[in-house]
């Protein structure tokens, strides 16, 4: 009886720990490359690259991010934010957004989000981000018109 309980305890511990830790660090990322790109990318045909980058910076500011780096030539912007949930319970959020010119005056915006030490694969997170970007793009477009 006692041995069975200890076995149960060991099983619980191994299952729980397996959920959090991996034997090797996540060097090459996880998941399908194609699926990841589809999840993280949205195409726009309303604004050029420069104005899209302005909108991305504004979106990150709207969401409470601090801009860490930005490069207009490569079209990359990285921001970070500490998300406060409750006292002493905070998350460090980091996001890199790239803006690329495509054929036919389109631009592709790709966002990579990380939460603490993990990549974010939740589709809702990217939907929320692109919804916020849509709004910023609209506001930028209004200024141009």
């Amino acid at each position: 009886m006692m041995r069975r309980s200890l076995q149960c305890l060991a099983l619980c511990a191994s299952v729980a720990l397996a959920g959090c830790a991996t034997a090797t660090p996540d060097v090459t990322g996880s998941g399908s490359q194609l699926q990841t790109r589809q999840l993280q990318t949205r195409d726009y045909d309303t604004l050029d690259k420069e104005k899209t980058m302005r909108s991305v910076v504004a979106t990150l500011q709207d969401l409470g991010f601090t801009i860490d780096t930005a490069d207009p030539t490569l079209g990359t912007i990285t921001g970070s934010r500490v998300y406060y949930e409750s006292d002493y319970k905070n998350f460090t959020m980091r996001m890199t957004v790239t803006v690329r010119e495509m054929e036919g005056k389109r631009v592709a915006v790709r966002a990579n989000a990380r939460l603490n030490d993990k990549a974010v694969a939740d589709p809702l997170t990217y939907q929320d981000f692109f919804a916020a970007l849509d709004k910023a793009m609209f506001l930028t477009l209004q200024q141009v018109d």
């Binding site: 309980s5 511990a13 959090c20 969401l63 998350f91 929320d128």
Partner: peptide
């Protein structure tokens, strides 16, 4: 046995609490 079972449940809860998930409104305006 009950204590060991309880410890197992507590350990599981503790470990799962350590695996944070993204806050729902984190990227919402």
């Amino acid at each position: 046995a009950r204590r060991a079972g309880l410890a197992g449940v507590l350990l599981l809860c503790g470990c799962l609490a350590g695996c944070e998930s993204i806050p729902e409104e984190a990227y919402r305006l």
